[in-house]
Amino acid sequence: MPKGLTFLPSLALAAVMALPLAAETKPDASTVVARVNGDEITLGHVIATASALPAQYQQLEDDVLYDFILEQLVQQHLLGQQQDALNPLNALRLENETRSLRAVQTVEAITAAEVTDEAIQAAYDAQFAEFEGEDEFNASHILVESEDEAKAIKAQLDEGADFAELAKEKSTGPSGPNGGSLGWFGKGQMVPEFENAVVALEKGSVSEPVQTQFGWHLVALNDKRKTQAPELAVVRDELAQTIRQDAIQAKVDELTQQATIERPALEGVGPEVMRQIELLQE
């Protein structure tokens, strides 16, 4: 039994009669699935509750989840029937929740109208149609402790020695066993002295000894390329979220301009008054 989804597990047994959905009629949101002392619980109540549950509950088997939700609603009815009305605090909470749900409906309507395949494609084209990309480099290096060591290795390379083999033999860096390969990287990912040496190289060439905080390097530029624009599928959600946020903000701005909004100053109190819950208990 999932924790937190139900409470008072046996309380409802004497007070409710669950009604099976009629096989010969198609149920709708008004179909009654339980009665508690005459108060009806409908299929709509169950569906609304299920739609608001956290993701972990959505993974439950349907029959298990249905029974638990119905049990929860029954128990809520039993406890709720003990009250004639909401107290001031809960009445205001209900007002706030109603306001929030109405706002959510407006947001959903805006999203449905504005976040379309056409809008997403247009946003993608505007952002990436003239995408030029950034430089990326594929380089290898040999790292040693002294400049003299680096110069000696450079001399070997100039005489035709294999860079990868010398890296495996001589390099003290972690890439040594892999022939000194650093793979692909962009600007800003290496220390400045190393990056400057890479940027200055032609494809297939090897630098003179370069000193960084890690020691002395010989750098070989294996290849160079431009980054490619991402596929639409990769950035679709991000673009949709941007369109959604922009559309909602535009609507808020429009409504704000059209509305008459007043904010009377609080006399004799500061914002800390919002913590005085006793004002709702008087």
Results as ranks from 00 to 15, higher is better:
Met1Asp: 13
Gly4Met: 07
Thr6Tyr: 11
Pro9Tyr: 06
Leu13Asp: 15
Val16Lys: 12
Ala18Asn: 15
Ala23Gln: 08
Thr25Ile: 07
Pro27Trp: 08
Pro27His: 08
Asp28Lys: 12
Thr31Arg: 08
Val32Glu: 03
Val33Thr: 09
Arg35Thr: 15
Val36Pro: 04
Gly38Lys: 10
Ile41Ser: 08
Ile41Gln: 09
Leu43His: 07
Gly44Lys: 04
Ala48Glu: 11
Ser51Ile: 06
Ser51Pro: 00
Ala52Phe: 11
Gln59Leu: 09
Glu61Tyr: 06
Asp62Lys: 14
Tyr66Phe: 14
Phe68Tyr: 15
Phe68Pro: 08
Gln72Ala: 12
Leu73Lys: 09
Gln75Ile: 14
Gln76Thr: 13
Gln76Asn: 14
Gln76Ile: 13
Leu79Ser: 05
Ala91Gly: 06
Leu92Met: 10
Leu94Ile: 10
Glu97Val: 15
Val104Pro: 07
Val107Met: 07
Ala109Val: 09
Thr111Lys: 12
Ala112Trp: 03
Val115Arg: 01
Asp117Lys: 07
Glu118Gly: 06
Ala123Trp: 00
Gln127Trp: 00
Phe128Asn: 06
Phe128Leu: 04
Ala129Val: 04
Phe131Pro: 07
Ala139Asn: 04
Val144Asn: 02
Glu147Gln: 13
Leu157Gln: 06
Leu166Val: 03
Lys170Pro: 01
Lys170Met: 05
Ser175Thr: 13
Ser175Tyr: 13
Gly176Lys: 02
Leu182Glu: 13
Gly183Met: 02
Gly183Arg: 05
Pro192Leu: 00
Glu195Asp: 11
Ala200Trp: 02
Glu202Phe: 00
Lys203Phe: 00
Gly204Glu: 01
Val210Glu: 01
Phe214Gln: 15
Leu218Arg: 02
Leu221Tyr: 00
Asp223Pro: 01
Pro230Met: 09
Arg244Ala: 04
Gln245Trp: 04
Ala247Leu: 03
Gln249Leu: 08
Val252Asp: 05
Ala259Tyr: 08
Thr260Met: 08
Thr260Trp: 06
Leu266Cys: 04
Val269Asp: 00
Glu272His: 06
Val273Arg: 10
